[in-house]
């Protein structure tokens, strides 16, 4: 089974995740011509390189971003959307940084504290 590292829950079977499409930016709502909207809606890049994609962890209802290499299918990095500067330029990242799964030892320490 392929393993996906979830930023909130830690490593999980890929069967617990749903692919949500590539991370794209919306065309300008006021000025974009129909052609640009059609391309945004119906066309997807189908080349090589690193893809930045939305993924959803079904068991916890959590959306996050994964960077995956299209040739090797290797998952390079996963992170909370709030850490993405292009999506949330002004968003604080402190929350999401705390959301990664710590080791069992760290959990024990936190509980016994």
């Amino acid at each position: 089974m392929k393993i996906m590292p979830c930023p909130l829950n830690g490593p999980r079977n890929i069967s617990e995740f749903v692919y949500g499409g590539e991370v794209t930016s919306l065309p300008d709502v006021e000025t974009a011509p129909d052609k640009e909207w059609a391309e945004h809606t119906f066309y997807a890049y189908n080349g090589t390189g690193v893809a930045k994609e939305w993924w959803y962890h079904v068991a916890s209802g959590y959306w996050f971003i994964a960077e995956r290499h299209r040739v090797t299918d290797q998952i390079l990095r996963t992170y909370d959307p709030s850490e993405d500067r292009t999506l949330f330029p002004a968003a604080a990242t402190t929350d999401a940084a705390a959301a990664t799964q710590p080791s069992a030892e760290a959990v024990k320490e936190e509980i016994t504290e």
Binding site: M1, L8, N9, R12, N13, S15, E16, H57, V58, A59, S60, A104, V107, K108, I111
Partner: peptide, 26 residues
Amino acid sequence: SAVDMREQHFPLGSIAQTSIARVNAV
């Protein structure tokens, strides 16, 4: 489940949101 929930890896107060027997659960 694929997540190790024996006590040494899943101590008191731990939560796992994962699937057991193909059903999503907390």
